[in-house]
Nucleic acid binder design. Structure first.
Length: 637
DNA sequence: GCCGTTTTCGGCCCGACTGTTTTCAGTCG
């Protein structure tokens, strides 16, 4: 765990402890917000002083002191925050686990603790079995059943799933929804649309002509004066019913007129990394899927609302209030003193149909979903009057990191070329492993020399066939533990492209890792640093180098840092791409192809790049061939 | 605890759904 993650974890836990202690809820919210801010920082908090911390949106005087206290004590080998320790002594630690059970919040858990002396999952189970749990206010049979199934779900309920598993699942369900009668449009929202590397739940929006446009509760309360039975408008929409009975749905968590939440089965991949592997998933892993039915006229407002992020939404709503308007998932409305929401009083929205018109009405340029994370960005976009033109899938014209059957790939060189042609690439690089990667059948110097000859001949053949594609002779050369490279300079100089990557010694301490990677970045023959940290999402933390130093060196030496597009890697990660983009360093987005389907991972690399605000001019894969070749040749001279 | 195009004090986004209630608190996103 990096220092930032450790600080974020403490702050987030402090937020929960504050809630359980019944303290001011806004104080708790402030702590969890500060945790999110620290988590998404590119630089280590270690390198920041108090003014730098306080300058961050969401971190003030008090929390800055706590972060500094943590850093100072960490350097002495006993990282802690005194206030956090103090609260931990007041709250039984088992309560935090109970708080993670879906459907249980701070009020209920606090009541369990205070009234029934429940302190952990064991005493909770006892209270369920003895029936004493029912003594709590607002606690009935159904609530108890819900807690029981929540207990059975265990950690699964809170685990975040890699985007590479969640997106195909969301797309499959979206297709199934599109097949339902009356459905006009289905969109994926939430963190999937923002392209985050891991996903907690899938949000889907369905547009139908007959979706209710006003709050059902209001209508029902009006009608319930006449009758106590459920009115027709309280019944779930037919699309909601159809969704809840899809074959992959295991549990219906909630189901109302316009929305439903279910747990549905995740299909694991069978490829190189078996989708997390059996050790990390229960036998039939599930994740939560939320569906909401929306009418055409408020689709933009709903899409915006359910795309988030939460912090982005809150900031937009505050903006709306500042200009005497109110923003909800039905649209942007003029603000007044009435208690009934504007959409329920027949008031026309100022904007609601598309996201673009809502941003415009708020005096903002359109903000792409990938950039809807940090509220502080909004003011910047407004000041500039525009958002940078982010790199897009269509901008990518080459892949500079790919393997063949010569090492551990499953494609022949010809198959590699066919895949590249299919995607309209002008260039594809063959970068098989170097000799130290024995397990990946790394090439010896002799075999690499042979491969170079093969590639030269292939280029001639392709030209004579009239195919406009260039195959680059390259290597994914190991960066050894001390930062030296796995092939000597003489051999590397014969190559068109050198991708240098760390594969072993991935638990080095940060200082050693920084030195190691700096050595590779400044090597005159290295063009790209492949998967710079070697992390695997949900599986291996990888190296934790001083990223600001790496970025500075990468800019100086015009060495590109790779975004490895495989969804298990996404390395560099988004916040580091952002820092690199800001600093003006070059970025490569490569698929590290081992089989044909790996080319399809490019979209995940693109999401990460966009979240890092990468523009085409800083992305070497978006350059025309001549510019790319000139850059490759410029190194080593 | 944080924050300020009205504020250095007094606010802090807004609605759906559930399960328990006779009108709403708690949880979630």
């Amino acid at each position: 765990m990096s220092l930032n993650e450790a600080v974020a974890q403490r702050l987030s836990e402090m937020s929960k402890l504050l809630e359980l202690l019944g303290e001011n809820q806004f104080k708790a919210i402030a702590h969890s917000r500060a945790a999110r801010v620290v988590e998404s920082l590119a630089d280590s908090v270690e390198s920041m002083d108090k003014p730098a911390l306080v300058a961050l949106d969401g971190i003030g005087d008090k929390i800055a002191d706590k972060i500094l206290e943590f850093c100072a004590s960490a350097s002495k080998g006993s990282p802690h925050i005194a206030e956090h320790e103090k609260m931990l002594k007041q709250v039984p630690p088992g309560l935090l686990e109970i708080l993670d059970i879906p459907g249980l919040g701070p009020k209920t858990v606090r009541a369990m603790w205070q009234e029934l002396k429940i302190t952990d999952k064991v005493s909770l189970k006892k209270a369920i079995d003895s029936g004493s749990l029912l003594k709590l206010p607002r606690m009935g049979e159904k609530a108890v059943e819900k807690i029981k199934s929540g207990l059975a779900l265990g950690e699964e309920a809170t685990r975040r799933i890699a985007i590479g598993l969640a997106l195909p699942m969301a797309e499959r369900i979206a297709d199934e929804l599109r097949a339902i009668k009356g459905v006009q449009r289905v969109e994926i929202a939430g963190s999937l649309r923002r392209g985050r590397e891991t996903i907690a739940d899938i949000d889907l929006l369905v547009q139908t002509a007959d979706a209710p446009g006003v709050a059902p509760k209001l209508r029902s309360s009006a009608k319930s004066k006449a009758t106590t039975s459920k009115s027709k408008s309280d019944e779930p929409h037919p699309v909601i019913e159809a969704f809840c009975s899809l074959p992959d749905v295991r549990d219906v968590i909630s189901k109302g007129p316009t929305r439903a939440s279910v747990r549905a089965v995740i299909n694991l991949h069978s490829g190189r990394w078996k989708g997390g592997g059996p050790d990390e998933h229960p036998k039939e892993p599930t994740m939560q899927v939320d569906v909401r039915v929306i009418p055409d006229r408020s689709f933009g407002a709903a899409l915006m609302y359910f795309t988030g992020s939460k912090d982005h939404n809150v900031a937009l709503r505050q903006r709306a209030l500042a200009q005497e308007q109110t923003l909800n998932e039905y649209g942007l409305f003029p603000e007044d003193e009435e208690e009934t929401p504007p959409q329920d009083r027949g008031i026309s929205p100022i904007a609601s149909k598309t996201e673009a018109e809502i941003y415009k009405a708020l005096g903002l340029p359109y903000i792409p979903p990938e950039l809807r994370e940090h509220p502080a960005d909004i003011a910047e976009f407004q000041k500039a009057g525009k958002v940078p033109k982010l790199v897009d899938l269509a901008d990518i014209k080459c892949d500079l990191h790919a393997h063949t059957t010569d090492s551990d790939g499953r494609m022949s060189m010809r198959e590699l070329v066919e895949n590249a042609l299919k995607r309209g690439f002008h260039t594809i690089a063959v970068t098989d492993h170097s000799k130290s990667s024995a397990i990946a059948n790394g090439l010896s110097p002799e075999r690499l020399r042979d491969q170079i000859k093969t590639i030269r001949a292939l280029n001639k053949a392709l030209k004579s066939e009239g195919l406009d594609i260039r195959v680059l002779a390259g290597s994914e050369v190991d960066i050894l533990a001390d930062g030296s490279l796995d092939f000597d300079d003489e051999l590397l100089a014969e190559l068109d492209i050198v991708v240098a990557s760390p594969h072993a010694a991935l638990s080095q301490d940060p200082a050693t890792a920084t030195k190691r990677l700096l050595k590779a970045i400044s090597h005159p023959l290295v063009h790209i640093i492949g998967h710079p940290t070697g992390r695997l999402i949900n599986r291996r933390h990888g190296l934790d180098p001083a990223m600001d130093e790496l970025i500075t060196a990468a800019k100086e030496h015009r060495t590109a840092l790779e975004i490895n597009a495989h969804w298990m890697r996404l390395d560099l990660r988004d916040v580091h791409v952002r820092a690199a983009t800001r600093a003006g360093a070059l970025i490569a987005i490569d698929c590290d192809d081992h089989e044909s389907s790996d080319f399809d991972n490019l979209r995940f690399g693109i999401s990460t790049a966009r979240r890092g605000m990468l523009t085409p001019d800083q992305c070497v894969n978006a350059w025309p061939r001549e510019k790319l070749l000139a850059w490759l040749k410029s190194k080593g001279r």
